[in-house]
Write a protein that binds this DNA or RNA. Structure first.
Lengths: 238, 238
DNA sequence: CGGGTTTTTGAATTTTATCAATGGCTGTGG
DNA sequence: CCACAGCCATTGATAAAATTCAAAAACCCG
């Protein structure tokens, strides 16, 4: 049995390498304000924070995967991001969180008080840039998601999602081409703006086309990566 | 004839008040690096920058409205943001712009070289916070848009969009409840992930329901604001 | 006023959602 | 160890929403 938390477990010994340097952020945070930050371990379905609550901390995911979502009055849900180790959570405009964040599996996060962030921004040269780069990167990813939701078909959305997970899952120790999906079908559906039935049907279509294999509910194998990319980009004739 | 540029014209004398203080950013930028920044006037359909180009500047909209968009290989387009006076453009992760930005009407922007941003982040205490708050705010808006695209019906999307414009348009000198839409139906469609036909049909439905009036193609009047809000939130029985 | 563009409206089609079962895995208790 | 219960995921049939294709109407600018 494999959970996404294994990604985090490995990140302790095999740090996830990321272009913009959240690792360096963690180093800075730990180095300069260790006493003010703490770690928190959470089980699946626990909330990191809730929309509408007063913002107290920013969180850095250390292991596991967190889902960030917004709700409509009638219960419709949109997951706005899946956060992997190295990702930051809860950096909202002052006062209140504008979304809720829920652990999708066992998760560890570092809790950084807001005032520590403010202090570091002033004291530590380069910390502001790191934070801004992380925010810009997050914004770019969210805009990619906007393109998916607004203009891609269900099939294209799912393929895009799998490639997205593939990029985040791609760390040392992972069996070649195998993706672990810590989230359920309903989470994928709420991320892609689809129903679980549509997600399921399109998983089946990809399997039938020989592009992926469904090893188990939470484990898939990408058999033909290039075809998957073609589907994701809508460059396909069928 | 009214263009959105009038918003900008008025912003010179009646500054748009915004909670997070882009005005203060403009003041800081002008105060400390005036020689390095310049203003640029543009006509409708001119591009501020193009996706894939090397990032040279960050832009602050002074007047008019700019549309930021991404394209798929086959030409499908998703507008990811409409930027009004006081909004910032082009703050992408290093190197290349990840989207294109096009003037939707006559536009004035302040051009701030990237290295000026980096320098100010180090030299000016508080500048980093301002920038980060602006980025966080942008992220929050983009996530709201994600909720619209993923989980709202065409009708709800359109109502949400009108309220969104309403909030940005709401400055001194505007006739009460009147919205000016500097963008065409196809821009609205590309923002909401719909076709122009669907947008048009739903404008008509709102008109027929007596919630709005279509004064001209680029001007609408909100007759029943509360009903519009109810539609936007999906709290409606029909 | 006139011509080109943009928007609206209509009919048919496609895509996705909804409703309804069925199938399969997992973990537990006899 | 097996049987069963509960949760997920898949599959199927039908319905609803939005798109596509095709005109017609309205608008805007010179």
């Amino acid at each position: 049995m494999l959970q996404a938390s294994s990604a985090g477990a490995s990140s302790a010994t095999n740090p996830v390498v990321k272009w913009f340097g959240p690792e360096s952020m963690n180093r800075v945070v730990i180095g300069h304000s260790f006493s003010a930050t703490s770690e928190r371990s959470m089980d699946a379905h626990e909330h990191v924070y809730l929309e509408g609550n007063t913002q107290t901390h920013v969180y850095l995911v250390l292991s596991g995967v967190v889902g960030t979502y917004k709700l409509l009055a009638d219960g419709r849900r949109q997951i706005v991001a899946f956060s992997y180790p190295g990702d930051m959570l809860g950096l909202d405009h002052p006062e209140l969180y504008t979304n809720s964040a829920e652990a999708l599996c066992k998760v560890r996060v570092r809790c950084i008080p807001i005032n520590a962030i403010d202090r570091l921004m002033l004291e530590e040269p380069g910390f502001g840039q790191t934070l801004l780069r992380m925010a810009s990167h997050e914004l770019a990813e969210t805009r990619d998601q906007l393109l998916s939701l607004g203009r891609k078909s269900a099939m294209e959305k799912l393929a895009t999602f799998l490639l997205h997970v593939s990029r985040r899952n791609n760390y040392a120790g992972n069996p070649e081409n195998t993706l672990y999906l810590p989230m359920k079908r309903c989470d994928i559906a709420d991320f892609l703006g689809l129903t679980i039935e549509t997600v399921s049907r399109n998983f089946t279509r990809l399997k039938t086309a020989g592009i992926i294999q469904l090893v188990s509910n939470s484990e898939i194998k990408v058999v033909r990566q290039l075809d998957l990319e073609a589907v994701a980009d809508g460059v396909t004739t069928n």
